[in-house]
Computed example of a mutant assay.
Amino acid sequence: MKDIENNSDIQLLVDEFYKKVNEDELLSPIFNEIAQVNWKDHLPKMYKFWSKLLLGENEYQGSPFDKHIQLPIGENHFNRWIQLFLETLDAHFAGSKATEARLKAQSIANIFNFKMKTIQASGYIR
């Protein structure tokens, strides 16, 4: 298997991952029914997000956590998200960038989960 080397690789990773999300009985309703994600807009943002994290490109602008605050998600959702992401990553890539993607995805899931727990425990919702 090859490593993540360019934007085409990022696009493959993102597209294959979100195919799994859209077929998942836990995550699909969050993305499609509750958040009502516009996939035509969301996927290019995710390409830019992961290209920034893994390839050092600077096209992504945004604060990804803010979009999650209002969603009814918890640890089980983050666990499933990371499971699907890592399955997708491992099915297509191996190497130092793939390892970096693994570590960054796990960190994102852990940070988002911690922040959501903190917000939910405080009763603060924007």
Rank of each mutant, 00 (worst) to 15 (best):
I108G: 06
D24K: 03
L103S: 12
S28V: 03
Q11W: 02
N7W: 01
S107R: 14
N113T: 10
E57L: 12
H68R: 03
W50P: 05
K45S: 12
L55M: 13
L43G: 05
S96D: 13
K115I: 12
F114N: 11
A91K: 08
K52Q: 15
Q106G: 14
N22M: 05
L54Y: 06
R102A: 12
E59H: 12
I82L: 15
G62M: 06
K117E: 14
W81N: 08
A101R: 07
A109S: 14
H42R: 05
E100I: 04
Q61E: 14
F85E: 06
K48M: 13
K45D: 10
D3Y: 01
I119C: 01
E100C: 03
A105R: 07
Q61Y: 10
F31M: 04
P29L: 13
A35C: 04
R80N: 12
N79P: 00
G56Q: 06
K115P: 04
E23Y: 04
G74P: 02
H68K: 09
R102V: 02
I111K: 10
A35N: 05
D41V: 08
L55T: 10
N76R: 10
V21W: 01
D3I: 12
G95Q: 02
Q61N: 06
E75K: 09
R80T: 07
A98C: 03
Q36E: 14
D9Q: 07
I10E: 07
E87P: 00
E57C: 03
E59M: 07
R102W: 08
E57Y: 04
I111P: 00
L84I: 06
F49Y: 13
F112S: 06
K52T: 12
L12E: 09
A94M: 11
N38E: 15
N38Q: 09
I119A: 05
D9N: 13
N79K: 15
L86W: 00
K19N: 12
D15P: 04
E59A: 14
F31S: 06
I73Q: 01
A98H: 02
E5P: 00
K52A: 15
W39G: 11
N6M: 11
Q83V: 10
V14M: 03
I4Y: 01
W39C: 03
F85L: 11
Q70K: 13
E25Q: 10
T99H: 02
D66E: 05
Y47F: 15
W81A: 08
F114M: 14
V21M: 07
P29W: 04
Q70I: 11
H42F: 11
Y18W: 03
E59I: 01
N7E: 15
T88P: 05
S28I: 01
A121T: 08
L89P: 04
N32Y: 03
L84H: 02
T118M: 12
I30C: 10
Q61A: 06
F31E: 04
Q36Y: 00
N22W: 00
S63V: 13
Q70L: 13
Y18P: 04
G95C: 05
D9H: 15
A98M: 05
G95F: 02
D90Y: 01
F78C: 05
L89C: 07
L55H: 08
P29N: 11
N22Y: 00
I34V: 15
W39D: 09
I108P: 01
H68E: 14
L27K: 05
L84R: 09
A105W: 00
F17L: 14
A101W: 03
L55R: 03
I34D: 07
Q106R: 10
D9M: 08
F17Q: 03
V14D: 04
I111Y: 06
G56M: 09
S107N: 14
L54W: 02
